[in-house]
Design a protein around this nucleic acid. Sequence first.
DNA 1: ATGGTTGGGGGCCAA
Length: 271
Amino acid sequence: MSRNPPRKGHFRIVSWNINSVRARLESIEKFLKDYDPDVLCLQEIKATEDVFPLQFFEDLGFKHTAIRGQKSYHGVATLARCPLSKIQSRDWCGKGDARHVSVRLPMGSLLHIFYVPAGGDIPDPKTNDKFEHKLAFLNEMITWSKKLHQPSILVGDLNVAPTEWDVWSHKALLNVVSHTPVETSLMLELQQAHNWVDAVRHMKPEPEKLYSWWSYRARDWAESNRGRRLDHIWVSPELGASIQNVEIATRVRGWEKPSDHAPVILDIKLS
DNA sequence: ATGGTTGGGGGCCAA
């Protein structure tokens, strides 16, 4: 079970908004056995570090961890088969939220996980503090990206579906938080701030529709297929040519007791 | 236009 990367000539990184790590142990175990990643990045673990199921992951071969948790809300975790160094996190927007952690992989790249604020229901920063927070968070990421000069991989639930091919209906969602023009233009600005390569679109270009999230509220999520691509994996421009394969594991959304997000998978050749 | 579901934690809030 345990082995050292790289194995098939690539390194597999997964980003998955798990919507409570403790509610999802069976799905996680099945996923790890089916997809065999080297690094699993979880968002919305909804657990403090003292109740995080460390032994569960260790038993599955994930002995190296970088966790930032808080009670009830948010929380991110990077779980790895390989050693992680330089574990750091930052308090974005000075809110004290657990929304980010970064690590250095053995091959030298940095890996940053983000859980961007969802932003509430009303897309107006003047009347909705949560939307204001989301915009401020994205702006802070832009400033940070401009100063980032190391080869990096950025993953997470960014809570923005940037293009019309990332939503089931561009028209229906133009005024819905996650796809409003102010958010999608900030997302574009964020990509340009480090020349980030959207790894998923790099391999599956427009106009193919791609979604990573489907609401729990649909009678039949797969049949109605009103999805949005909120979860992303980006890489620094110098790593763009190293991308081997990507997949959004849509079938996982159909498992028993699922998260409302599907895992996003990147296979990359890291030297 | 509305309401639909889930998780955490013990209220309803956030998504």
